[in-house]
């Protein structure tokens, strides 16, 4: 339903506008002065100051792969993460574990595991879907590269970033 907006009744000084302009200029000048005198706490000066120490527990940085306390790759290349990934950033080439391997019972491990970081949207779905608790979003956020190929994280890089994650991890962090 249409309704009428009540316009405020302006006084004479408000109508001629100039005093209010001066008042506005005073406000902006106050901000300028406070900045110049260093009273305002400004944004972080990024490359020199970093917020790494303040990252919250539930921060979602780059997805990584982890090994367990015995050095076993947790990933069994079930490819669930590859399917769930909304921008299709993950490409897995599944492989079989050799029968003489210590972990032969697990049967499978990824031969190649690539995450294209120029596609990843840090949604965390891969972490949620993984039945083996093998993929985790860690706190690395400065992912850079000089070309598209540089932006693809290969398996080595993913394990290097991920490190080990011992024992059973409570992955359903309510805050994540």
């Amino acid at each position: 339903m249409a309704y009428t907006v009540r316009r405020p009744n302006l006084t004479f000084w408000e109508k001629i506008y100039l005093p209010n302009i001066v008042a506005g200029l005073a406000i902006t000048f106050k901000h300028l002065r406070k900045m110049l005198q260093g009273e305002t706490k400004v944004v972080m000066q990024y490359p020199e100051e970093k917020w790494d120490a303040h990252l919250p527990e539930y921060y979602r940085g780059a997805p990584t792969l982890v090994t367990d306390e015995h050095g076993r790759e947790r990933c069994v290349s079930c490819q669930l993460c590859e399917f769930i990934c909304p921008p299709r950033a993950i490409t897995i080439t599944p492989g079989e574990l050799a029968s003489d391997s210590k972990f032969a019972k697990v049967e499978k491990a990824p031969k190649a595991f690539e995450i294209d970081m120029s596609r990843c949207i840090y949604c965390g779905l891969c972490e949620e879907v993984c039945p083996e608790q093998a993929i985790y979003l860690r706190k690395d956020y400065a992912v850079t590269g000089e070309n598209r190929a540089d932006m693809v994280h290969h398996k080595d890089k993913l394990y290097e970033l991920g490190g080990t994650m011992p024992g059973l991890v409570h992955k359903w962090n309510p805050e994540k």
Partner: peptide
């Protein structure tokens, strides 16, 4: 610069 300072930026 001035616009940034007025808006509490650098």
């Amino acid at each position: 610069r001035v616009s940034a300072l007025i808006q509490d930026r650098l």
